[in-house]
Design a protein around this nucleic acid. Sequence first.
DNA 1: CTGTTAGCGCGTTCAC
DNA 2: GTGAACGCGCTAACAG
Lengths: 358, 358
Amino acid sequence: MRNFYFEATNSGRKELCFSMSKHQATIKEIALALNVSVSTVSRALQDDPRIGLRTKMRVSEMAKALHYIPNPAAKSLRKQSTLTIGVILPQLREEFFSLAITGIEDAFEGKGYNIFITQSRDKYEREIKATRYFLQSRVDGIIVSISAETTDYQHFRELQEFDVPVVFFDRVPNNMPVHCVRSNVEDGVLKAMGYLAQKNLHKIALLNGPKTLGISQERLSGYLAALKEFNFEAIPGYIKYTDLSREDIAAKMQELWTQTEERPEAVLAFNDYVALGAIKWCRNNGIKPNEDLYFVSFANLPITDYLDHPPAASLEQYAYQMGQNAANLMIELLEQPNSTVPRPFKEIIMDTELVIHI
Amino acid sequence: MRNFYFEATNSGRKELCFSMSKHQATIKEIALALNVSVSTVSRALQDDPRIGLRTKMRVSEMAKALHYIPNPAAKSLRKQSTLTIGVILPQLREEFFSLAITGIEDAFEGKGYNIFITQSRDKYEREIKATRYFLQSRVDGIIVSISAETTDYQHFRELQEFDVPVVFFDRVPNNMPVHCVRSNVEDGVLKAMGYLAQKNLHKIALLNGPKTLGISQERLSGYLAALKEFNFEAIPGYIKYTDLSREDIAAKMQELWTQTEERPEAVLAFNDYVALGAIKWCRNNGIKPNEDLYFVSFANLPITDYLDHPPAASLEQYAYQMGQNAANLMIELLEQPNSTVPRPFKEIIMDTELVIHI
DNA sequence: CTGTTAGCGCGTTCAC
DNA sequence: GTGAACGCGCTAACAG
């Protein structure tokens, strides 16, 4: 299929060119082809009321004919806005985050923004690289769930200093004022422990995530509060932190099972993946999950529905909804006029729901 | 932390401005502050040999002081290249694709490209929107695994017409010459059926994916070839197509189990997720997976390792590696000079390996 | 070695 | 209604 396009030469003449491949025309070429000025074309394409209907028609037809596609780089440069939102996630593989992404995408649907996804893979260095990249790309906003390794938030402060709106979700920074969406973890833990109490299980271990994460700390404080609330024993060695790797989860389970004075009756796991790893360890060691050892965890991911032995109960965290909330909070920030006074930080805390599987 | 920056006014004077928030300086501001020209700054920052060492030092210091961050929009506009690769995947949730993404990211590591991920969610319309968006964004290349709904490839042809390099992986178009990376599916099926033959299982059903996908067709032709090869019976109603949804998988399993003359002894599933859905259906219906009914599938995803009842065997497809191969093929295309003669299409076919779980 | 100048594609004042 | 001219930030050809 032969196509033609106009090329402006230095002398101002227009030349009809032939090419095997299509050409991404510019407004200049449309203007040249129509013998009007570029500004007329620009305005026509923007449906500016000052342009006559007939001209608009001609312009839009020629635009189609020449395969005009607006160049966002030029637009960004001019408008000082890229209409792009950066998203930094620990792991795409975790269903929690891929659900959240979908929620974010849906919330931005029709808003004209593009979502740029990056995974930190739970590495501090990769997270920093991602923030730097987004900063220089001039994204209009960044949505983050922080990596397991991150303890220092300087790179996020830098974003704030450059006035890039940032919204955190689920894994949010400790002791730093930010916009964020997170679960009411402590309340969730209380619900989970209440369920175990009902089952008459008292010796409950905490198989936590990385110590660095605020959400691990919250699980701990919820756990400690629940121990008191339900008069459970605080048994030495019952609190374990993991780096979320299968190996470490297995190692900590081994410790819980063999190196404590009394074997636990139940385990409260950091999330479903941790629970799955622990349950797998149980099966490898002839321990019957949810019989010999009960499991309760966070997230309630759809994937657990495939399992014979899911955690006995899991706290639904509404990952999709959480993504949507984070995105909507971002949209709010983007739509606010760029006032000089710093806006107050907004925190959305979402309730969890205990879903009983067994 | 108070910061200052220089602002160029219309009159050409430079003004020292104060601001609470940092400012993304431009080379112009650096030039102004240093009393040199913008081109000197530009060259210094690019480490151009023509610039003196002393000047380079001064420039790079001032760049740091003013928080200079190069603007990629301007660079793209000038260079006519965005250094961005678009990736279109059916579902991030599927571990196969999130593994592939990681392979793609790693292959591009250090190459200076940025990876822009989008999910089609197996919707034709979303896939078209994504290609259009990438086209107008002027991405330098697009890597795709096509959606389950897609039967028409016009949107991909359009990309080719605009000279945007496209590499497909795993789910590749039928009957269309393209660059692609895919598994040797038919050989894989043969291996899987051979395994079942060894187990003395003869009545084997095919629980396939969407009819639209080439990789479903390949599974079918591999299946038919294997039936002959091993002298298995071709039993009516043993070939089922699914839309990959849990509901449809359950419905087709129901049909296989109740509406065929003889119940199958084994099921060859489209992939691990389909197998998981089918296995779940079995448990719901009191059928013992891999005893009453054997399962063999494609992908061999890590997630299946969490299961009590994974498919008895699965064909490892090396998703991460496949992503890397696709990315490396793309890099090849990008590095080729833009010759006018169309380059021959390259097809990389990867062998699978049968991994026995039981 | 460095400065001047001219665009890349687009939007937006000004003029008329 | 429309056009000329400018600038967003950056690179590169040309000129010293």
